[in-house]
Amino acid sequence: MLLSILIYGLINSIILALTAIGFSLTFGISGVANFAYGGFYILSGFLVWMLLNYLRFPLLLAIALTIGVVGLLGFITYWIILLRVRGIALSEVIATFALGVGILELFRYLGFVTYEFTLPYLKKGMILIAGVPVDYQRLYIIGIGLALVLFLYFFTHHTRIGLSFRGIAQNERTAISLGIRSDWTAALSLAFGCAMGALAAIVILPLGIISINTGYEVLLIAVAVGIVGGLESVSGILIASLILGYTQVFTGTYLKPEWMMVVYLAAIVIVLTIKPSGLFGKFKELEERV
């Protein structure tokens, strides 16, 4: 029992981290809260489904194509929509929110609401880990989640573009004066965020059906994890995911599964009351730097 809680808590935590990381990445780099994140997440799911079922693409090709396309869409979104309202928080928020809602409700209108919309597992079957049955898909999730975090770390610390991401995140004006093109970087941050959302969708969605409401839920998860961990910090995201993930599994096991969603509400309210910038947030209210 305890062992299964440990294993499934870890899986659940990594699912949360995977879901949240794209949203936080974009916010951390360019300060854009991408409220269309849930929309892109579900779009990726349906895109893979359509490529598989209408065009009969092989799975891996469909996945690669989808991640590319969704990343590109994020990039285009920046140039077409966000660039024109950059810096006006009100407009940025409304525009991305409207985009997300538009995508999700369009799918609802087109009838993508039945149980036939599921994605296949990357690999079927399961193994026993210390007596606990775990299917391969969930192992893939763990693997991909960890790989993504490691990749992000090396990417932001050791590549040119990654370093310019960090530069923008720390001080946009200085970064611009050092020759970093802030618009390109912000557009790329949106593209990366969306592509990560797509990747998360492709590995996580096979565990259930692709439903429109998941789109809103994803935003909820991303936001809850972000608020608990602090929106700008990758380590904060990881730790917040662990906290939320294990709490959820505990409530799911010892209370009722339906209570799991309530954990988010409680977590958000508690963290906002005690430490509004998040447990690991670098966001300091009203601080003027030298």
């Binding site: 928080a89 940025e92 928020v93 935003l219 909820l220 936001v223 608020i227 509004p276 009203l286």
Partner: peptide, 19 residues
């Protein structure tokens, strides 16, 4: 949330009705 600036208010108002 009122102690924070920026998009936090938007995020929380979006989340609360759903929750």
């Amino acid at each position: 949330v009122l102690r924070l600036r920026g998009v936090y208010f938007a995020i929380v108002t979006l989340t609360l009705p759903l929750l």
